[in-house]
Design a protein around this nucleic acid. Structure first.
Lengths: 241, 241
DNA sequence: TAGTGGTCTAGACCACCCG
DNA sequence: GGGTGGTCTAGACCACTAG
């Protein structure tokens, strides 16, 4: 049923995710049993189990011993999402809008002390800094500022496409995979400069997220600082056991 | 090596978590290989793997193919935590304080429309409502309000110990296990009443978390609304792949 | 090249829920 | 009782990294 250019589990996961997204398995309903799925895909039950376990941790499925595996209707309808803290595109999509990324400024400059600390580089070392605006159906909702150690890139920064999401950008221009993120959440007043980009009044109350992306080697890849209009977008997260 | 009153994987997980907490495996160092751990505990490699995978998702370990498994020093030193969104005790501990829970008010009253919607009950149905203050080294830092459907409890609400964490409280008095949570994060001004409890000025900018706890049967267990002093406590989260 | 984690299988037995 | 998910094993082979 499945060939093997990519791991079987990954392929099964993609198929199941699509079925959930497209409503083949409808909200709240029971999906086929592990054995049935294993037979359908021609893989072992263990392989199916690793996939179902992952989808359950991400809040998409509920598993009940002796009963079956169910589509988590609650999470689906609440538009809650596992990666909202760093994946603004999905966040905007989950709020029912179409996302666009618009670059508003970029520069190369030396790192401040704070930036150097977060990125584990020397103060004054070269940084690539980029300001980007996330639009939800053409309405500006998030302003994100990212800084990357200049040494990460294999190409001149002029060639970097500023409309890519962070993970894609790091893959393409730095050949790095993101392994984990650490996010700090704050409530702040909106700085004047950011307010103009977001078309809002200064001093409004806003959510601010500080995110650091790390590679599997524990190497800091980028430091992000973003402001977030929580009157338009809801920051809603799932955690499951 | 291990007997089996509880699942082997769970026992292995507890041992490894303790070793990480107590520094037996020090920050950034490599821990024994899967085969070595399997031999030490007398379990199969597959069992060890499920445990290591879980600890990696929670950000405690980093796994590198062909190399080994390492203690994630970055997460440890940043005091980042997987469950900060709903486990305020761990949150306070991770910020370096000793947590205490202090009950400040409780009542039984009918549910508002909004509460009824969130808890999937009828408006006007009985609720147990409790306001609690979380102290970090005796300093008030979080005010949490929780409402529970009255029908959940097997005992008179007078017997409920208001100083327990939510999960423990639900286990003991409602015989329910929490399976997942949905959290909405907001930035707000501090309401006057809450300000006095937290010993702060009204209208200060604060983080507000709205959390709903669900059972494995998709049954809403409690709706929580909390205010959060992000000048004392940092809300810092890990997400790993 | 040796050792690590990554993938996958086949099969056993258990705990649990339902009709 | 029959089917579901939960636990666990033994073993195979692969992909990768280090020295």
């Amino acid at each position: 049923m499945l060939v093997q250019p990519k791991p079987l589990a990954e392929q099964v996961e993609q198929v199941l995710r699509r079925r959930l997204r497209e409503g083949v398995y409808s909200a709240g309903s029971r999906i086929p049993s592990e054995s049935e799925l294993a037979a359908e895909f021609g893989v072992s039950r263990a392989t199916v189990r690793t996939v179902l376990a992952k989808l359950a941790v991400h809040g998409l499925l509920l598993r009940r011993q002796g009963d079956g595996t169910y589509v988590n209707a609650r999470v689906q309808q609440a538009n809650a999402h596992w990666g909202s803290l760093w994946d603004f595109n999905s966040l905007i999509e989950n709020n029912g809008y179409t996302p666009t990324i618009q670059e508003v400024a970029r520069e190369v400059r030396p790192a401040t002390e704070e930036e150097a600390l977060a990125l584990a580089i020397a103060p004054g070392e070269g940084l690539f800094s980029i300001h980007r605006l996330f639009l939800a159906d053409a309405q500006p909702v998030i302003l994100a500022h990212n800084v990357f150690p200049l040494s990460l890139f294999r190409v001149p920064v002029e060639q970097i496409d500023g409309s890519l999401h962070i993970r894609r950008l790091l893959q393409r221009y730095a050949a790095r995979e993101v392994a984990f993120t650490i996010t700090t959440v704050h409530a702040t007043h909106l700085p004047e400069k950011v307010a103009s980009w977001l078309c809002r009044q200064p001093e409004e109350v806003m959510l601010s997220l500080q995110v650091v992306f790390y590679s599997k080697d524990d190497e800091p890849l980028t430091l992000g600082h973003s402001f977030f209009d929580d009157r338009v977008l809801r920051l809603r997260l799932v955690q499951a056991w």
